[in-house]
């Protein structure tokens, strides 16, 4: 896909460019809070982008992706607990655990669809959650501190700045990849499956293999976000793998625009940004937040990215059949 800089992409690209400069500005202004806050935004944007592969492209409504975020966190926390700081070992643990758990839970979950799929992914995530809670020697409910950060060839993720830098690069790389993936055979097969699963089989493609691959890829990428989060907080706790986190990730993707390139990023910025602002204003922020999300949901399934693409197109007369590259697809798996 050629990435034309239409009005639809202009805002997210500008936002990303701004975020590239943010740590320098925060350092100059002596406001380290901003670096830490936006590092969190970037990390959740990675997780949301990861979820978008399964949810947005494939229509697989997983309510269990916090499990993979958690596996990523404990892939740092457990080795670190035993004094292993080698980041490559953390990555290997993350890819292996998310990969294996992804294959197993995906294989079972994909035998169902619709509500059953949502419930079964939720059930698996809850099993993982309670397993971690029951491991008292590793902090149980309270979670565990991470004494040493991941270290790659001497580069340590011990500071918010370094986590920020890695998260930023990973998000940009992922976003570029999603832009390609959407129109590559793999992405097209997933999108076709979301529109009409039966038809995919009749053109000769075995949809479930592609969906399982998407689910596992999505799980591993989500795990990487978890690794970064663990390093940022220097802490791993079961609370970041509760089902509410899975729900929030879905909201971020839907808010931004399912299946679109920048949607998950925009949705995360909006979600965490609004949350932070409301928290500062009122203690009843959750109620206000709920109403806001409802309003956006009513705006349409295309989310913020769809809104931007539409406003970008209204300048030029819409040609029959022309759709903006960002126009998110609607609908989930039946």
């Amino acid at each position: 896909m050629r990435m034309s800089l239409s009005t639809g992409n202009a805002l997210p690209v500008a936002l990303l460019a701004g975020l590239a400069l943010l740590p320098f500005a925060a350092a100059a202004a002596d406001e380290p809070f901003f670096t830490a806050f936006f590092a969190r935004v970037l990390i959740y944007a990675i997780a949301a982008t990861a979820l978008n592969v399964a949810l947005g492209l494939g229509g697989l409504v997983s309510l269990g992706h916090a499990l993979f975020l958690g596996l990523g966190m404990y892939s740092v926390a457990l080795p670190a607990h035993f004094g292993i700081a080698n980041g490559w070992i953390h990555v290997a643990a993350c890819v292996a655990s998310c990969g294996v758990v992804g294959i197993l839970t995906g294989y079972v979950s994909l035998r169902t669809s619709g509500i059953a799929f949502i419930m079964i992914t939720l059930a698996f995530a809850q099993m993982g959650y309670f397993l971690i809670v029951s491991l008292k020697q590793f902090g149980g409910d309270d979670g565990m501190a991470i004494p040493v950060a991941s270290e790659f060839f001497g580069f340590s993720l011990g500071s918010p700045d370094s986590v920020y830098g890695v998260a930023f690069c990973l998000l940009v790389a992922l976003t570029v990849w999603i832009a390609r993936l959407r129109s590559a055979p793999f992405g097209m097969t997933l999108r076709a499956g979301r529109q009409n699963a039966r038809r995919v089989a009749s053109v000769g493609l075995s949809l479930s293999r592609y969906q399982l691959t998407a689910y596992v890829l999505s799980a591993i990428l989500c795990g990487l976000a978890g690794m970064l989060l663990a390093n940022l907080n220097a802490y791993a706790s079961p609370s970041s793998m509760s089902w509410m986190v899975s729900g929030e990730l879905i909201v971020m993707v839907v808010l931004g625009g399912m299946g679109s390139v920048f949607g998950p990023f925009l949705g995360t910025v909006a979600f965490l940004g609004i949350e932070e602002m409301l928290k500062a204003v009122t203690e009843h922020w959750m109620a206000v937040f709920g109403i806001l999300i409802l309003a956006v949901a009513l705006l349409g399934k295309a989310g913020i990215a769809g809104l931007l693409a539409r406003s970008g197109r209204s300048n030029s007369p819409a040609r029959k059949g022309a759709k903006g590259p960002l126009l998110a697809e609607s609908g989930v798996q039946p």
Partner: peptide, 13 residues
């Protein structure tokens, strides 16, 4: 679908 698999993740269909 009838020529090959769709496991390609970068180049446009």
């Amino acid at each position: 679908g009838t020529q090959r698999h769709a496991f390609s993740f970068w180049t446009s269909l």
